[in-house]
């Protein structure tokens, strides 16, 4: 292939740039690249690196190619344009133009629209790295059969989960549940601290919740956690 600049020498360098949301391929010879200097090269690299100006219009590309894939595009473009994130108010147009999510909910709203195209700009379409130790259970982590979380919880994680549920219960004035969560948290904290006897729990509650064969365990603690 001939260099597209001088049209005289053999092209040896291939540059892929994002222009107007399209991947555009450029082919240059070594001399012309040298002539253009690092400038051209670095401006392209820069667009990919600068957090304030990510990969040109990355999202536009993700969305742009999506429409070609008719069976994976359940909605007409006109309808897409009306989508707005209910939590932060980011509109479809805003999302595509700024290549930017406004909140965690945006991922649920706009994420499915990106579909397989994520793979074009990332190494894969699924996270394979670190998971947070706490607080990720409330997102859409797939549950295993039987409703158990996909990952076994450490006592600390259980405490965090219960604290969240406690806060949620208090917020909606569900004090009955709140009391239950509070007791479970106490139980787990005691267990963590190595306190094994259960005199900590109010006598009446313990008696009421204790069924034959389950003596010595906290009332319903483990069942409720799963």
């Amino acid at each position: 292939m001939l260099c597209e600049k001088c049209r005289a020498r053999e092209a040896v360098v291939k540059l892929i740039a994002l222009e107007n949301g399209q991947k555009v391929e450029h082919n240059f010879c070594a001399e012309c690249v040298q002539e253009m200097g690092m400038e051209a090269m670095n401006i392209m690299m820069d667009q990919m690196m600068d957090e304030s100006n990510p990969i040109g219009k990355l999202v536009a590309e993700m969305m742009g190619t999506m429409n070609l894939n008719s069976e994976q595009a359940p909605k007409a473009p006109e309808e897409l344009k009306n989508i707005i994130c209910p939590k932060c108010g980011t509109s479809y147009k805003e999302f595509v133009e700024a290549s930017r999510f406004g909140c965690a909910t945006c991922y649920d709203i706009f994420g499915p629209l990106m579909n397989e195209n994520v793979k074009n700009v990332q190494a894969g379409d699924r996270h394979t790295g670190k998971h947070p130790a706490y607080g990720w259970l409330n997102s859409d982590v797939p549950a295993q059969a039987g409703g158990a979380p996909a990952k076994a919880l450490t006592p600390k994680e259980e405490i965090r989960l219960l604290e969240n549920q406690l806060a949620d219960a208090v917020a909606v004035e569900d004090f009955e549940s709140a009391a239950k969560y509070r007791d479970q948290i106490r139980f787990l904290k005691n267990m963590e601290a190595g306190v094994t006897d259960l005199e900590f729990f109010p006598e009446g509650e313990e008696a009421a919740g204790t069924e034959p064969g389950t003596e010595g365990t906290a009332p319903g603690a483990e069942e409720d956690l799963l």
Binding site: A104, V118, H127, N138
Partner: peptide, 18 residues
Amino acid sequence: NYAFHDRYGYLTAFPTNM
């Protein structure tokens, strides 16, 4: 609690960091 998604991992403002 972090914004985390089973598929997209840690959720970030820019898709280049997700």
